[in-house]
Design a protein around this nucleic acid. Structure first.
Length: 487
RNA sequence: AGCGGUAUCGUCUAGUGGUUAGGACGGGAGAUUCUCAUUCUCCAAACAGGGGUUCAAUUCCCCUUACCGCCGCCA
């Protein structure tokens, strides 16, 4: 039995996209489930669009998501290098083999000539297919063209290969997720495998690398289906073993267009900055197309791997809805321990002076404020009143609460009574309960009583547990703020 | 235009030749609470349309429609 080897092959022309992350995840899951290897390969044949910061971002994001690779540019492996730009000496050799076998030919067409072909095709409302006019150039003609200074590209001879290995022009393969797929290869057109500058095109480099790296299963987005037909033909022309293919539906934005910047975050790192937990991201994205056999949706990556069956992946596109992601994120936040939370929340509290709070106070603050968080970043706006001597009063709290006679009365009474209170949480809890009861006697709802205190102390009409807030702030600050609120 | 793919509540999905078509998010109602939130209970919400095949079709086949993707010396 041959080893299961899968790969994720991102192109570093941008930060790691959430869609790429999902593809990586499914590859990872497939490898884990089948005791296979998960390979990372960087596809940077287009130097123009590549940047080191993108490469770093891809590495960091994949790691953060827990999608650790067994072989890759940094960790190496038996089939390296794992960065295509470091493999440029490999591809021409195989192009040469194809040339010699007659499965490829040199093409001297200029961009202008090619453009003209395309133009006439669109004018005649026909799909564009390369004319093959360079297929049978004589050695003399090639020499003449070369003398003109023209550098040839190398094209793959589709029909020649198809005819050599198949009875008719239809090519079929069994897709792991979509079932049997077929295509009339006459419609494909002889595509370039080596550019005139000597670098390979995507379709060629992928095949050479997948072959050399002994990739057994290629799991990728369905936008690659038509490439797959071309790639299978290259495998055949080279006499190589053809991997199994599985094509995943795409992730679409809520408006059913491709998920892009204008829909919000697209890069994993952006989601993380916004305060999404990578565990939530992984869990959510796994549920796009895959569903657990026991119906329990909250699952760790390991649990998902256990239950993973590639054939059960939905073959349709799915829409990326924030509602569920947000719900899931808040769920994962609630599963964090307080110690973990204290650390993870710190990056979002830099605008405050945390040294104002003792560790015990900070702990308590986190305990009483984490529950409503959807994003870790929500903490920023949830806690300003824990810091500084005074507090900013929201207009709503001022007008609806503090400006009322009841509130003014409550505050004055509170000041009087609390003078002798010990500001421990237990004690406050007891005292406040009695305080509320007292006002309830007078026909003032508990809610109204507490609103007055809350508005004066926090500047808001809603927020965390009031007793704990008072205990954390301490008598001095609480009295100071209440006095400020009294007219 | 051509080619390929997909089609179950608004969204992610389960499921079956005979089911009250299930769950989750979101939405609505209520309970709890000092507020927001949490939690709990309940409710509404779907088999794209048309033909077949069959005793029976959401399920199998065909067509239509819609949507997505691909048609580069980008990946």
């Amino acid at each position: 039995m041959t080893e299961i080897r899968v790969r994720i092959a991102p192109s570093p022309s941008g930060n790691l996209h959430i869609g790429t992350a999902r593809t990586a995840l499914f590859n990872y899951l497939f490898a884990k489930k089948n005791n296979g290897k998960f390979v990372l390969r960087i596809e940077d044949t287009d130097a123009e669009r590549t940047s080191q910061s993108y490469i770093d971002n891809i590495f960091d994001s994949l790691k953060a998501l827990g999608l650790n690779w067994d072989e890759g540019p940094d960790v190496g492996g038996p089939y390296g290098p794992y960065t295509q730009s470091e493999r440029f000496d490999i591809y021409p050799k195989y192009a040469q083999i194809l040339l010699e076998k007659g499965f490829a030919y040199e093409c001297f067409c200029t961009p202008e000539e090619l453009e003209a072909e395309k133009q006439s095709a669109t004018q005649n409302k026909k799909p564009y297919v390369y004319s093959k006019k360079c297929e049978n150039l004589s050695e003399n003609e090639k020499a003449r063209l070369r003398a003109e200074g023209r550098k040839p590209a190398i094209r793959f001879n589709i029909s020649k290969v198809q005819k050599t290995f198949h009875d008719n022009s239809v090519l079929k393969f069994d897709d792991l997720v979509k079932g049997e797929l077929h295509m009339d290869t006459d419609l494909l057109g002889d595509f370039v495998i080596m550019k005139s500058n000597g670098t390979p095109t995507y379709n060629f480099a992928v095949v050479i690398d997948d072959m050399l790296m002994k990739i057994s299963h290629v799991i990728r987005g369905e936008d690659h289906i038509s490439n797959t037909f071309k790639q299978i033909l290259i495998f055949e022309a080279l006499g190589a073993q053809i991997p199994k293919f599985g094509h995943l539906g795409m992730i679409l934005a809520p408006d059913r267009s491709k998920l892009s910047k204008r829909h919000g975050a697209t890069a994993v790192s952006e989601f993380v900055e916004k305060g999404y937990l990578t565990e939530a991201l992984i869990n959510f994205v796994a549920l796009l197309g895959w569903s657990p056999s026991d119906g329990k949706e909250i699952k760790s990556i390991d649990e998902i791997a256990q239950d993973f069956r590639i054939g059960d992946i939905s073959s349709s596109n799915s829409i990326f809805e924030y509602d569920k992601l947000n719900w899931m994120n808040s769920h994962y936040i609630k599963m964090l321990s307080i110690e973990e939370l204290k650390e993870k929340l710190k990056p979002y509290l830099t605008k405050y002076d945390l040294s104002e709070l003792t560790d015990a106070q900070y702990t308590r603050m986190v305990e009483i404020t984490y529950e409503p968080l959807t994003l870790l970043s929500n903490i920023t706006d949830a806690v300003p009143y824990f810091f500084g001597e005074d507090v900013e009063i929201e207009p709503k709290a001022q007008i609806d609460v503090l400006d009322t006679d009841v509130a003014q009365d409550v505050l004055k009474e509170f000041l009087k009574q609390a003078e002798n209170w010990e500001f421990s949480e237990d004690n406050l809890h007891e005292k406040l309960e009695a305080f509320r009861a007292e006002y309830k006697e007078k026909g003032i709802k508990p809610k109204v009583t507490m609103w007055a205190i809350r508005a004066a102390v926090t500047g808001r009409t809603c927020g965390a547990d009031m007793t704990a807030i008072l205990a954390i702030l301490g008598k001095d600050k609480v009295f100071r703020r209440i006095k400020n609120a009294i007219k």
